[in-house]
């Protein structure tokens, strides 16, 4: 086992990362005994595990992801949602209401319209990348009120932070509620419009400076400054 990069080193496609029996996660591929990066990103090595955290790229739906979709079309038994991804999501009435629906008796257009934002979970993605969504359960379904912000999907883990540290900090400092979908869409709810705007600004800062250190502290200071009446 030989390692050719340091942890969190910037790597480019085709760069040799390691040789030997590593467990491969995203952003890497193997040829013979050699492990290479397939994207521009930060190499991360933890014992046997090796992966590259991409710095760019679109959202690809994965089972279990929480996403925020926007309804783009309706059909007789459900809706098609834009997921800020090459692949659209399918949501059926039963997946939204969590009960059996008699389509002859009930008009489903009363539940969602084109343009509505929906908080949903990806329950299945098949090999043809057809995406099944479910939006029952608490906190799921049609999103009302609040502000929708779109950032690069690769930066979402930074918005959430280690064990949710960043999003917890933003919520407690600003008094706004935050919900980050893996597809790069974030909902913000808050009574104070000034603070909501500050959170939007903070999120855009995170997107720009996701790869710098000490970001949580800087965002905290920024929000505290706005909160105490600063610009």
């Amino acid at each position: 086992m030989m390692l050719h990069v340091q942890n969190r080193e910037l790597v480019i496609p085709g760069q040799l990362l390691a040789e030997g029996s590593y467990l491969l996660y995203g952003g890497v591929f193997k040829e013979g005994k050699c492990v290479y990066s397939s994207v521009v990103g930060l190499a991360e090595v933890r014992g046997q595990d090796i992966r590259v955290i991409p710095l760019q790229g679109c959202y690809i739906p994965k089972r279990g992801d929480f996403v925020i979709g926007v309804v783009v079309d309706t059909h007789s038994s459900g809706w098609i949602l834009d997921l800020n991804s090459p692949y659209a999501g399918n949501l059926f009435v039963s997946g939204l209401l969590d009960r059996k629906v008699d389509l002859d008796r009930e008009d489903i257009s009363q539940y969602l319209k084109v343009g509505d934002a929906v908080a949903a979970e990806v329950v299945d993605v098949d090999e043809r990348m057809r995406v099944m969504l479910e939006a029952s359960g608490p906190g799921m379904g049609k999103v009302t009120g609040g502000k929708l912000v779109e950032i690069a999907p690769t930066k979402i883990p930074r918005v959430i932070g280690k064990k949710g540290s960043m999003s917890t900090m933003i919520q407690s400092t600003s008094g706004c509620r935050l919900r980050a979908g893996q597809n790069g869409r974030i909902m913000i709810w808050g009574d104070d419009t000034r603070m909501v705007r500050a959170v939007v600004e903070a999120l855009l800062t995170i997107e720009r400076e996701a790869h710098t250190s000490g970001l949580t502290d800087r965002v905290h200071q920024f929000l505290e400054r706005i909160k105490s009446g600063g610009e």
């Binding site: 480019i12 496609p13 085709g14 591929f29 290479y36 994207v39 991409p54 710095l55 760019q56 790229g57």
Partner: peptide
């Protein structure tokens, strides 16, 4: 292509 984050074997 690399800048777009598209996975590639090499440049």
């Amino acid at each position: 292509l690399a800048d777009a984050g598209i996975p590639m074997r090499d440049l």
